[in-house]
Design a protein around this nucleic acid. Structure first.
Lengths: 118, 118
DNA sequence: ACAACCTACAACTAATTGGTTGTAGGTTGT
DNA sequence: ACAACCTACAACCAATTAGTTGTAGGTTGT
């Protein structure tokens, strides 16, 4: 299963990058709570419509939100599964840290059982 | 408690940005599992020592790792509390999503109890 | 003392990013 | 039909980023 890992890393790059901007995080909060059109979102921020539309596109490319067409409007809503997948990446990092603690505990409990040279 | 929120957002920007690079995520994995000197880390990647040193500095500025001096070496180790604080930001996003579901359930359970015009 | 080693940072380059304005195409209501 | 509206995207600009090489200072072992 090597080769898909690059894709996973690409996906992680895109997700973390999308989250690394406060305007995008705010947009994400709004569209997680409920559907919003791009124009409705744009009205909330002190920047051009095009700028907000770009932020929405970044979130969409990262898979954090999806859009659905309703007539002339594009309604965006947040994808909670994507958020969870980011969370699980962090949990994996935590498990590495717990692994370190476990290793230290081992050293204290039984000082080098099989090997006996330094 | 308004005014500290800007700082929180700055911190979130820095953390997510630091995580949005696969080399930095890999460095973080290694230093969560155990202390590594900058030179030891640099040996693992196909880029200059200075480039890796910069990545370490980005992680450090974001508060995801810390360094300790040991003679001529700088030993880096991961801060699991910082990782957890990023995780809790995602959990807050999830709770917004659950709020939406709760609101939809309300609508289904009792169709407009107080107000009765469309 | 001195050579080897580890780190930090400055200066530079190419690519990316976050913003702008302008243009064009599809949808809606009168 | 047509004006108002919503969206998408291109072209451009300033700032930032990820990489490079080079320089300099502190530490270690002989």
């Amino acid at each position: 299963m090597t080769g898909t890992e690059d894709q996973n890393e690409d996906r992680a790059d895109a997700m973390f990058h999308a989250l690394a901007d406060r305007t995008r995080r705010d947009i994400l909060r709004r569209v997680l709570a409920g559907e919003h059109s791009v124009t409705t979102l744009a009205a909330k921020y002190d920047m051009s419509f095009a700028a907000v539309q770009k932020h929405v596109a970044v979130l969409e490319r990262a898979g954090l939100i999806s859009k659905r067409r309703a007539g002339r409007e594009a309604l965006a809503s947040g994808d909670v599964e994507a958020i969870r997948s980011v969370g699980s990446m962090l949990t994996e990092l935590e498990s590495l840290w717990r692994g370190r603690i476990a290793r230290i505990d081992e050293l204290i409990a039984q000082p080098r059982p099989t090997e006996r040279n330094q």
